[in-house]
Write a protein that binds this DNA or RNA. Structure first.
Lengths: 114, 114
DNA sequence: AGGCAATTTACCTTTTACGGTAAGATTGGC
DNA sequence: GCCAATCTTACCGTAAAAGGTAAATTGCCT
């Protein structure tokens, strides 16, 4: 079991900084792409967003390129500066029902864990 | 201006680990409270959620108590284990329109910054 | 009271986010 | 061509997240 965990890499600059799985990589890339879309859509440069958020432009760059795993408050500061709800940056749109289906029984099947 | 930035503290164990403002403190506290609500609602212990997420139980504890600023992938792992959309942990419900109103003119008023 | 499970706190180590700065790229206008 | 603006990358220092472990603490139950 567990034959393919789907290990992927998180490259910050030249080098590998972390190992993340494919789903996490996509999560970071998607969040970064949405931030960039909103920022450029408002005609803001990285430098301007840096001034608004207090996050440096290089830091914003790596976040937008999915090369960094930002903290919750970091995302929140970006969302505030861009005047969009935080959820809009990490999930698709308003609904954003990814997996859902909170287990038919309501409980969680722990299997071998419990 | 800027008389009251509303500095608040982030206490991990005994000591202050960071200075965050009030809004960020509330953000972390709210996210933690929602995680705890979902977890206990599914009858899971911290130990069980730790096994499901790969995040240690002490780490989950401080996150649930709003004493830590988790990374995006950390929140994602918790959301996946709890089988709820990630947005449900950081924003209220589905809508979660906080500020919205992306500026009437569409652009951003940079004021003294531009 | 005593015991047990769950949680919290404390201490330590490693990893990583973030800022600053500076140096490449890249694009566009002159 | 050169120059300017924007973005990316690199390197370094600091701060903080996250894990492990173990020791308190709280709550619950008989």
């Amino acid at each position: 079991m567990n034959a393919s965990l789907g290990a992927s890499i998180l490259v910050e600059n030249g080098k590998v900084t972390r190992l993340v799985n494919v789903a996490e990589n996509k999560l970071l890339a998607d969040a970064g792409r949405r931030i960039r879309e909103v920022r450029t859509g408002q005609g803001l440069s990285l430098e301007q967003l840096a001034l608004l958020t207090g996050i440096s432009a290089p830091a914003l760059s790596v976040i937008e390129n999915g090369k960094r795993d930002p903290r919750l408050t970091t995302l929140s500061r970006i969302a505030e500066a861009l005047r969009v709800p935080l959820a809009a940056l990490i999930a698709g749109g308003v609904g954003a029902a990814e997996s859902a289906a909170p287990s038919p029984s309501g409980g969680y099947d722990l299997g071998e864990y419990q």
